[in-house]
């Protein structure tokens, strides 16, 4: 056999056997073997096409792992929470984004999509189970939330605001949209009851309840002015960074349904089971207690398309988000606070 014939046969064998072996062997065996960290590939597809694969991974506390996210069909936004501050941004179809991280503490974390990817977008979640190497196999303890427990004990129905065409939002009448700025100027001229000065009290009472108290203590003042004072009192005390973070969380996770200005007119609002509530409606927001809004965000809405975010956000992030929601109707200190 000629030398060039032998060479050609060798090339054919290289193509038919060597090429597949090299490509697949490198990707599935050599590459992970050469990596200094454990590599975990997570494929994301629209929920209707399977969501995250795998949707649950296990790592040990203190172990450094590399999570490689890819999307197979639509653009996803990949974040991991709560409390890790990890947001990989958009992952386009066919794109791979990776992050190398170490989970310091045992617990349960969630990787999730924060970019509207499909009507079942909220199902785009996966779990990182971080085990304690000293206590392998221990079942995770459920995280207690005293705020929600207190509401249950109090018998508060946090789902009383289901918003349909037949069931409008509960609202109180206000003469005008309250203004934090006006309220701040008026506060020194108003007799503010002690309860209203207590942050814990404010969280467990609605602005409407507070307004009644304020009117009783200040009979000579106009209701609209006193509503401004309430708006100021409910405007929280968040730093600029916290407000920006809350705004980012809102825009990525809430705006698709509730709209960027809280008007309940997000791009997918029409496809939800019930109408998204309207945070920009001051009359409605005055009926809402902060702790109820908090609970709703963390637990989700029963019988509605409102997903739970308690596994994605920290409690502080949730409180900041509550405050941001108030800014849409003038009662918060967010960037939209006095826009209305």
């Amino acid at each position: 056999m000629e030398r060039r014939e032998r060479f050609a046969i060798a090339v054919v064998l290289l193509i038919l056997i060597g090429l597949p072996a090299a490509a697949l062997g490198y990707q599935y065996w050599l590459r992970p073997a050469l990596s200094s960290t454990r590599m975990i590939d997570i494929r994301a597809a629209a929920p209707e096409a399977g969501g995250f694969q795998p949707d649950a991974i296990q790592v040990n506390a203190g172990e450094t792992v590399t999570l490689r996210f890819s999307s197979t069909d639509v653009t996803q936004g990949i974040a991991i929470g709560p409390g890790l501050g990890i947001d990989l941004g958009h992952v386009d179809p066919g794109q791979v984004k990776e992050i190398t991280l170490t989970f310091d503490h045992a617990g349960t974390y969630t990787f999730y999509c924060n970019s509207w990817c499909s009507p079942d977008h909220w199902r785009m979640r996966g779990i990182v189970q971080v085990d304690d190497p000293a206590n392998p196999g221990a079942l995770p303890t459920s995280q207690r939330d005293p705020v929600i427990e207190a509401l249950i004990a109090e018998g508060v129905d946090i789902d009383d605001n289901v918003h349909t065409d037949d069931h409008p939002l509960p609202v109180i009448s206000l003469d005008r949209v309250p203004s934090v700025a006006r309220g701040e100027m008026l506060t020194s001229t108003v007799n503010v009851p002690a309860d209203l000065q207590n942050a814990a009290w404010r969280r467990s009472h609605s602005p409407a309840q507070a307004l009644d108290l304020l009117i009783a203590d200040n009979p000579s003042m106009g209701r609209a002015e006193l509503a401004d004072v309430i708006a100021y009192l409910w405007s929280g005390g968040l730093s600029a960074e916290q407000i920006t973070a809350a705004q980012t969380l809102y825009n990525k996770n809430c705006a698709a349904c509730h709209g960027e200005t809280g008007a309940g007119d997000g791009p997918v609002a029409s496809s939800t089971e019930n109408n998204p509530v309207i945070f920009a409606d001051a009359g409605y927001m005055f009926t809402r207690r902060d702790d109820v809004l908090y609970a709703k965000i963390r637990r989700g809405g029963m019988g509605t398309d409102m997903p739970n975010f308690g596994t994605l956000f920290t409690q502080d992030e949730t409180w900041a988000l509550v405050n941001y929601l108030r800014s849409f109707s003038g009662t918060g200190q967010g960037p939209l606070g006095d826009a209305h």
């Binding site: 050609a8 090339v11 054919v12 193509i15 038919l16 090429l19 597949p20 490509a23 697949l24 890819s70 999307s71 197979t72 069909d73 386009d92 179809p93 066919g94 794109q95």
Partner: peptide, 25 residues
């Protein structure tokens, strides 16, 4: 033909094992 066979086999491999996203495959 060997050159095109290489590309052809690579195309089959990437189609079977690569990303389902056509624009990146």
């Amino acid at each position: 033909m060997l050159i095109t066979l290489f590309v052809f086999v690579l195309a089959i491999l990437t189609g079977l094992f690569g990303t389902p996203a056509g624009s990146r495959n």
